[in-house]
């Protein structure tokens, strides 16, 4: 799916837990997520902390979309 969206000319970031799969399917901007059943959350945290974690991942995703990349890039920081 990421590849088809990229092909249409829209920059796309893939937030996913299993980074090797994302690399195989051809995503160019990748942000590693928390866990498979809750990529953007962590039920062990309190509601506020969990939301802060989610915001951090989304901000990192936006940053990746603002970054020029030549090849597949994993944004893990």
């Amino acid at each position: 799916m990421v590849k088809e969206i990229e092909r249409a000319g829209i920059p796309v970031v893939h937030i996913c837990t299993v980074v090797p799969i994302s690399l195989t399917v051809g995503a160019n901007r990748i942000v590693p997520a928390v866990a498979i059943p809750h990529p953007l959350g962590n039920p062990d945290l309190g509601k506020e902390d969990e939301k802060a974690l989610r915001k951090q991942l989304v901000l990192r995703s936006l940053k990746s979309l603002e970054t020029e990349v030549q090849d597949q890039t994993v944004f893990d920081k």
Binding site: M1, K3, A8, I10, P11, I15
Partner: peptide
């Protein structure tokens, strides 16, 4: 099928003037 869905979705997103996409997977 994934390709088919995403290419239809992408076409609409382009038409709607979307500049970037966040795609999440589990």
């Amino acid at each position: 099928n994934s390709k088919k869905y995403a290419s239809a979705i992408a076409k609409e997103l382009v038409a709607d003037g979307v500049q970037a996409v966040i795609l999440t997977s589990t």
